[in-house]
Design a protein around this nucleic acid. Sequence first.
DNA 1: CCCGGGCCTGACGCCACCGTGAAGCTTGTT
DNA 2: AACAAGCTTCACGGTGGCGTCAGGCCCGGG
Lengths: 247, 247
Amino acid sequence: MGSLATPFVTSRTVNPTPVVKPTGRILVVEDDPAVQKALRRLFETEGYSVETQSDGKSALDSFQASAPAAVVLDLRLPKVSGSDVCKEIKSIAPSLPIVVLSAASDVSDKVLLLELGADDYVTKPFSPRELLARVRAALRHTARTPDVQVVSFDDISVDFKKMEVKRDGQPVILTAQEFKTFQFLVRNADRVISRDELLNEVWGYQNYPSTRTVDNHILKLRQKLEKDPSSPVHFRTVHGMGYKFVR
Amino acid sequence: MGSLATPFVTSRTVNPTPVVKPTGRILVVEDDPAVQKALRRLFETEGYSVETQSDGKSALDSFQASAPAAVVLDLRLPKVSGSDVCKEIKSIAPSLPIVVLSAASDVSDKVLLLELGADDYVTKPFSPRELLARVRAALRHTARTPDVQVVSFDDISVDFKKMEVKRDGQPVILTAQEFKTFQFLVRNADRVISRDELLNEVWGYQNYPSTRTVDNHILKLRQKLEKDPSSPVHFRTVHGMGYKFVR
DNA sequence: CCCGGGCCTGACGCCACCGTGAAGCTTGTT
DNA sequence: AACAAGCTTCACGGTGGCGTCAGGCCCGGG
């Protein structure tokens, strides 16, 4: 891969808009230290946590250990070839999205990519933005939550797809963070959830505010959704433990 | 993913993958056995059932017999050429979506494809994800478009087929990009759509502008289509999330 | 061949909104 | 009663969204 001075075609500024703070960990497998570093920075500034490996063998080990949400994989690797790593990973975790980095010549044959089982690819030189976009798209696909899209209780109904909450048919405005919190609670109804777990799942590993912040959001949710916010029925406090949502 | 052998144990929201699997059958016409196999695997892991044929003649037979929901067709085929197969199928079933696989050189001109009657095409080398996306799009398109090419709200009426927008009976001029954006939003009405998703779907990966660009186009659409652009009713902002179109 | 207009893109500044955490009060537990 | 944990208010700072503007590219006309 060293044929190119830099894999980036442009140094344009990257997306300034981290839509929903991603919480996933990404495994980057790339032997060129410079590119590796660049990729790490790219993803980390976007809120992902990054694990890097330089060769196929350690990549496979690392993959087993760290359970990443997605893999970015250079095809040209020392020791174990990138193709083999790709196949290996796909045979273990078929639904784990893999985005392949490759020189144009590597993928001149369409057979290759398909057989590898890679989900998507980017040819060098590539724009950081494009890579980012493809990784996001890959993640979005697997993260699609066709779970339950509509939940109702009391006079409240929630539509997760529309991001809409109604009360007595009247729309209730929730902020993004409130909605995410609510969603997590609903999906884990009847279970006691500690503040720390909420911070992990809803806020992500990157930004880790104080546990007081959680209280505040619970407060908001109670004010907006409970009949009597001062004696909550759905958003219950479990003293010394955390919160529990019950329908 | 395997039921017990899953190497990942996360405390995260468990995704039991109850994905609503598509039920369609897809006819894959491809002479290279390796590619054929890979394509089969690709679609089958996505929940489609797959029928494969290696040459044009048997493809036509198979098509008659199995009535697939979509066709994936390699242009380079032995015996009967892919183009002829395409034309033939389209003459029998005009609304059956066909996605063509072709070398870049084959499709110097998109007009050719139109003549063929293909709905979409992917040039080699292509990413599996992209092919999947296009097939899905093709299926979605024909599935949800019985004849509803015209959408109306307020004093606005849109004709997607004619690419015409009217307001109070007066034609409104939308640029190509504006129209595409509008169309995507309308087709995904009531759903919150992130800027990134819009960029992916409307702009594509190749030219991946900044998310600011999306804002600008929304702005234009509001100016042209909202009664009061400063307090939009249809093109709604969802803070920290993206946009949502409601009729 | 040059010119001009339309469209896409992205920069900048303004503003509203929302997340955050401190502080004081209340509730619950022992 | 005393201490710990939770609740609520409030103010601040950051982030995201909007709208205007300017530069660049492409296409069509002169």
